[in-house]
């Protein structure tokens, strides 16, 4: 990697961390003008920056407003870079995801960050939004033939809705993968509800979403070696 390229990636990372949306746009455009690989800027620039944001959040240096602004900066860069992803990278779409916050729950910040992660990683994402009637998840999964359904609940009071969705999904389509997330969700919930996975640290959906960006980058790096 040339020094220029390294320097530019470092600047993209920094601009995401400093939630400088305009700077991210400027750098992403420069990256494309120089003819570099868009995917590299997405993973080693934008997503790498978001990984640091996750650490800052875990350390109580950043709070939710800062993380939201970093995500906006990331999206600004993604919008510019995505059309330039090489055809051969595009064909390796990771899969189709249906995502949403269950009925009764109007919290969507954690869900939106998980969605961001999937978009960065090149999934086709169908976002149902928040306060989603339970049957809607099943309908959408069938309609899109999604590989993965992600359910979010931020309140203990809305969590039981996830169990119902899981039962309905399994009945119609035993093979679909189901991920659940949100502050009250733990490994124990995954087991109790019959889901496939959640993040390791259930304390915060936010931290998880950002950690997952990191683990996806790791997967990708290994593949390249």
């Amino acid at each position: 990697m040339t020094e220029d390229k390294k320097q530019l990636l470092e600047e993209i990372r920094k601009a995401v961390i400093e939630f400088d949306e305009d700077r991210v746009k400027e750098l992403a455009n420069k990256w494309i003008e120089l003819g570099y690989d868009a995917n590299e800027a997405i993973f080693e620039g934008l997503a790498a920056g978001m990984e640091v944001v996750g650490d800052l959040f875990a350390k109580n240096e950043y709070f939710v407003p800062e993380v939201l602004m970093c995500a906006d900066a990331l999206y600004a860069g993604l919008d510019i870079l995505r059309p330039h992803i090489k055809a051969e990278d595009k064909t390796e779409t990771k899969g189709v995801v249906v995502i949403g916050t269950v009925e009764g729950d109007v919290h969507d910040i954690g869900k939106n960050l998980v969605k961001l992660m999937f978009e960065v990683a090149g999934f086709e994402v169908h976002d149902l939004g928040k306060d989603v009637p339970l049957e809607k998840f099943v309908e959408e999964q069938l309609k899109t033939d999604a590989d993965l359904v992600c359910l979010s609940a931020m309140m203990t009071t809305t969590m039981p809705g996830m169990k119902k969705v899981i039962e309905m999904l399994r009945e119609r389509n035993p093979n679909v993968k189901i991920m659940i997330g949100g502050a009250p969700v733990s490994e124990k919930t995954v087991e109790m509800y019959g889901a496939d996975a959640t993040g390791k640290d259930a304390a915060s959906a936010l931290e998880e979403a950002i950690k997952m960006v990191a683990s996806l980058r790791e997967m990708k790096r290994k593949k390249e070696i």
Partner: peptide, 11 residues
């Protein structure tokens, strides 16, 4: 959430 089986708080 009138008519819902599960207990949901108004939003």
């Amino acid at each position: 959430y009138a008519g819902k089986q599960n207990i949901l708080y108004p939003t």
